[in-house]
């Protein structure tokens, strides 16, 4: 069985692992790295619950092979913020009741982060457009949109750049 050594930075920590080429990034993160916050929801690259950041951009980890992240950085929900120090997006989802079953939430928050990284002052329409690749069955989206706008406001008022939880862990 063919395996390949990859060097990848996951939530700020460099790891070096042998993986079979056919292993999807989502499975690599869940099964090999033990980061089960990244979920899997469909087979056809439509639902977005497996969204992670690859070099800062949201990507569907079910539609990348783990070997493709060799030399790259991956951020999962576990790297977004710790329980003691939630990222403003996580706080926003809590404050605005932006989640119910929680299954789409990690992907939704990482897609939200990319929206705010690019545009710190989005409109409701910007947020809805930016989340068009992430399905939610529970909330009807309205509170998710409010959660992202809540986080945007908080991040603007605080001014500083947020250090992702994973980087300050160790």
């Amino acid at each position: 069985m063919e395996e390949r050594r990859i060097n990848v930075v996951v939530n700020g920590e460099p790891v070096s692992v042998d993986v079979e080429p056919r292993i999807l990034l989502a499975h690599f993160l869940r099964e090999i790295m033990g980061l089960t916050g990244t979920h899997i929801g469909c087979d056809t690259t439509n639902c977005g619950v497996c969204t992670v950041l690859v070099d800062g951009l949201p990507m569907k980890s079910c539609t990348m092979f783990a070997v493709m992240t060799d030399g790259h950085e991956v951020t999962t929900v576990e790297g977004l913020g710790m329980p003691s120090e939630l990222h403003p997006i996580q706080q926003g989802f809590r404050e605005e009741h932006g989640l119910q079953c929680g299954f789409c939430t990690p992907g939704m928050m990482l897609a939200s982060k990319a929206i705010l990284d690019e545009n710190p002052n989005p409109t409701e329409e910007d947020v809805r457009w930016g989340l068009a690749g992430n399905l939610c069955r529970c909330t009807g989206y309205q509170n998710i949109v409010k959660a992202v706008l809540w986080a945007a406001e908080k991040m603007r008022s605080e001014g500083g750049a947020y250090v992702l939880g994973g980087r300050s862990r160790r």
Binding site: T45, G48, T51, L57, P58, M59, K60, T63, M64, A111, A114, G130, A132, G133
Partner: peptide, 9 residues
Amino acid sequence: IADPMVRNR
């Protein structure tokens, strides 16, 4: 084209 994540890649 598709959605933001697909367009990123």
